[in-house]
Nucleic acid binder design. Sequence first.
DNA 1: CCGTATCCTCCCCGATACTG
DNA 2: CAGTATCGGGGAGGATACGG
Lengths: 146, 146
Amino acid sequence: MTTMPTTDVPVVRELAERHGLPAEGGCAAAEATSEVRSVLDRVGDKWSVLILGMLSGGPQRFTELLHGIDGISQRMLTLNLRQLERDGLVSRTVHAVVPPRVDYALTDLGATLLPPVLALVDWALENTTTIRDHRDQFDARATSAG
Amino acid sequence: MTTMPTTDVPVVRELAERHGLPAEGGCAAAEATSEVRSVLDRVGDKWSVLILGMLSGGPQRFTELLHGIDGISQRMLTLNLRQLERDGLVSRTVHAVVPPRVDYALTDLGATLLPPVLALVDWALENTTTIRDHRDQFDARATSAG
DNA sequence: CCGTATCCTCCCCGATACTG
DNA sequence: CAGTATCGGGGAGGATACGG
């Protein structure tokens, strides 16, 4: 995440106040914003949502995730899992066996994040064609105009 | 956005099928995924959500957005607005006056995106302290371990 | 006022190779 | 099997200057 601008978006401020955050000076949202951003960043990540989706079906080991998510590299899987673990969204349990076995699972917190995210996915699916149409028209106008 | 992996995430597939997308061969989600990603990308953008939030209070002109969103550059504002306009989330109306006046507003489609996004923001605000605690504990363990 | 064009920097992330 | 270490290309995005 990058450095955070202190912004005063009405809707966010309203939400912030509803959650009992101090609204003095108009910088109410500012403090909360950095935390909000980190969540939105995660949703925007190329892989995080896919990982959470994978784990929604139950615990998975590292390699299962690696092969289940097409195109992800070991490195990125590790980094993403660490992030999710750090935020408490995913748990990591190491079994002391040979060969090593590590299971990843959604935490309760992680499970509560899923519905809002899926609502977004749902919206996207519902408006797929509408968006595509808009884009096509926009691009057509752009190229015809020059 | 980057090239899309064909992934078979159960939850997403389920949603895709609910929306009547062909589920043959297990690549059901794959086709829809690129559109889904573009939406998720927008949510993950540094500025898009803030812009949408700004416009939720009614139309705004370019400069109002520029000054209302702290830290954004002219360039990024323009780029983001073009993207949102291209997707049909935001409308751009030019008034033929001097000095030039351009108003940006949420479209109906854009307005329907707001609730899911705000649900996410709401989740983030609700779990701010929990997440922060997790992070602190994780970092503490990490540094103590080495 | 509302952009576009250009430059330039930083950091994300993929590829690859190596360890316990 | 489940990671870490290191390198390098490329894109995102800020600063600045200029145009309609």
